[in-house]
Design a protein around this nucleic acid. Structure first.
Lengths: 169, 169
DNA sequence: CGGCTGAGTATCTATAAGTAAACCCAAACT
DNA sequence: AGTTTGGGTTTACTTATAGATACTCAGCCG
């Protein structure tokens, strides 16, 4: 019997199917970054864009959606606004990434690597990620606390402290 | 001068803003897993669900969307269909994950960890991931080829073999 | 034969996104 | 004073996606 099944073996419910999924961290992250354009905006921030016009030009995304997404990312603390001033122009806002935004890098690198592996052009990827200090290629890996590299098949998901069942009915 | 800038220093174009983003691996991955419900379906497959009714019950997602998503995931080779047979019932299809699907685990674990850090309930996460063999907690890390752990700030993105500029106009 | 079940389809409505264009604002420049 | 510029907002219209509900279909069972 696995860790899910032993949670509720006496009720008629199935913890896999009747658990409450509303506090799932994957779903909650997707509520923020799961809308169209959001991750692509962050990609451009990582690649060096910071201004409204930069995003519009490189993404080709509608201005109203871009404004909505940028406002949301700032409200969520993933981006922050600063000002910049070109000589001869007034101060204007720009968008910079926060530590909270940088913490999304592993997730997005996971998407990047999957696309590199399964959907790249014949020549290879359009962009390569490397370690600035040593120039070596970087990738995402799953590791356990003891430092072992872990294959996805070796991962076991178990109920955590906030695990709960769906209200019956 | 960085690797982006030296790509096209003589033209009037800016490689950051005028590059062709249509072969971006992040965007291409999102074309497949970026629609609502897709990643949540995969989550349930990892947690042990395999049948149409399982997904519907635990996700509460509309049946027509579920059917569309499952068909697409099978077409893309992320899931595969097998059959199961309950005693006294006819054979019915079930959905199992492929190696290509397992390769999405690092990306989704990245989303999970971000949600655990920034959007979890006060008690903690609803689900914990651990190494089946040793029971230790697992997480995603970025590493370079030489085995160094790499912080997101230490990553440099440079043009790859399929880098190209947008057709002018 | 008629009802039950799991796995879908079909249809309709509601919401979100895409497209295009006009408009606003403040500072700097002419 | 009038124009230009970057960074938006607003409006109007079209299309795509999401959601809710009803219906179908194939086999098993009595």
């Amino acid at each position: 019997m696995d860790a899910w099944t032993e949670v509720l073996q006496d009720t008629g419910m199935d913890p896999r199917l009747d658990r409450d999924t509303s506090n799932c961290s994957i779903a909650r992250t997707l509520e923020i970054v799961g809308e169209k354009w959001t991750i692509l905006i962050l990609r451009e921030v990582w690649y060096g864009s910071s201004r409204f016009g930069d995003f519009e030009r490189v993404l080709g995304c509608p201005r109203n959606l871009l404004a909505t997404r940028l406002r949301m990312l700032v409200e969520e603390g993933i981006l922050a606004t600063e000002t910049y001033k070109e000589p001869g122009s007034r101060s204007r806002p720009k968008y910079v990434i926060t530590a909270k935004g940088m913490d999304l890098v592993p997730a997005v690198m996971g998407l990047l690597e999957w696309g590199d592996r399964y959907r790249a052009d014949p020549e290879g990827p359009a962009v390569l990620a490397r370690h600035r200090e040593c120039g070596a290629h970087v990738d995402v890996q799953i590791r356990c606390e003891r430092g072992h590299a872990v294959q996805a098949e070796e991962i076991e998901s178990v109920p955590g402290p906030a695990f709960r069942m769906r209200p019956a009915g």
